[in-house]
Computed example of a mutant assay.
Amino acid sequence: MFTGIIEEKGKIREVKLSGVSGTIKIAASKVLEGTKLGDSIAVNGVCLTVTQMDDAGFSADVMAETLRRSSLGSLSKGDYVNLERAMAADGRFGGHIVSGHIDGMGTISKVKNEGNATWIYISTSKNILDLIVEKGSIAIDGISLTVAKVSDVDFAVSVIPHTASETTLLDKKIDDCVNLENDIIGKYVQKFFSCGGNENSAQEKRDRKILEFLNL
């Protein structure tokens, strides 16, 4: 589990893709502290398992599902990525619950400045927008952010200078893709109501059969 509070920006050392899978090597320093083989690191919001390490960084395998769901397949040597180690049990929970399992991608449609903040508008699919609420949370390339606006076609976040300097978000340009992870609580609530409707329907059928059996 992650919090969406980025610890450092890493630099892509190498990307090797063969067919629908591959390996990614990332230069990093802070996220290596206390990390061992098999640990998880979120790379632009994607939970990856550390398979190799050296003093300059780490490597991770990337599977087909990861490439389908995220923008990792478009990374090139020299690109910067947001990095976060899995949350320690005794750590501060500064962001929100982030699993590192990407729901899909969005496209930056507009960027505008307002005082010391920068508004970023992101267009995405309906199934992702349906789980976004104003003042709720969303992870964009692994960054925990508060939704400032949401419409039928896009949503917007307001980025403060600290977030801008510590992450890669403002390095993005119009039409660039970003990884999106909806708030896990919203997904469970949607699932609950979806299942609840089916359960109620089944319960009603059982109740009718019981009444018929009792001739009531």
Results as ranks from 00 to 15, higher is better:
Ser151Phe: 03
Tyr188Glu: 08
Asp183Thr: 15
Ser201Ile: 06
Phe192Gly: 04
Leu214Tyr: 01
Gly196Phe: 00
Leu48Trp: 00
Thr3Asn: 07
Asn198Gly: 10
Asp154Trp: 06
Ile102Gly: 01
Leu48Glu: 03
Lys110Asn: 13
Ser74Asp: 15
Leu170Asp: 01
Tyr121Phe: 13
Asp90Ala: 14
Tyr121Gln: 12
Gly104Glu: 01
Ser70Asp: 02
His101Arg: 07
Glu65Thr: 14
Gly19Gln: 02
Lys149Phe: 10
Ile26Phe: 07
Cys195Glu: 10
Phe2Ser: 09
Ala148Trp: 04
Leu17Tyr: 00
Leu216Val: 11
Ala139Gln: 00
Ala88His: 11
Ile108Gln: 08
Gly142Asn: 06
Met105Trp: 00
Lys187Pro: 07
Gly91His: 09
Cys195Asp: 09
Ser59Cys: 14
Leu131Arg: 11
Val157Phe: 12
Val81Gln: 02
Gly19Met: 01
Gly73Asn: 09
Ala60Arg: 06
Asp152Asn: 15
Leu216Lys: 07
Asp103Val: 06
Leu170Thr: 05
Tyr80Ile: 03
Asn215Tyr: 00
Asn127Lys: 08
Asp103Trp: 02
Gly106Gln: 07
Arg85Lys: 15
Thr168Arg: 05
Gln52Ala: 15
Lys77Trp: 06
Arg85Thr: 04
Ile138Tyr: 04
Ile184Phe: 14
Ile132Gln: 07
Leu170Glu: 00
Ala56Gln: 09
Ala28Asn: 09
Ala27Phe: 11
Ile185Ala: 12
Arg13Ser: 13
Val15Ser: 04
Asn113Tyr: 02
Ala156Thr: 14
Met1His: 09
Ile143Phe: 03
Val150Ile: 15
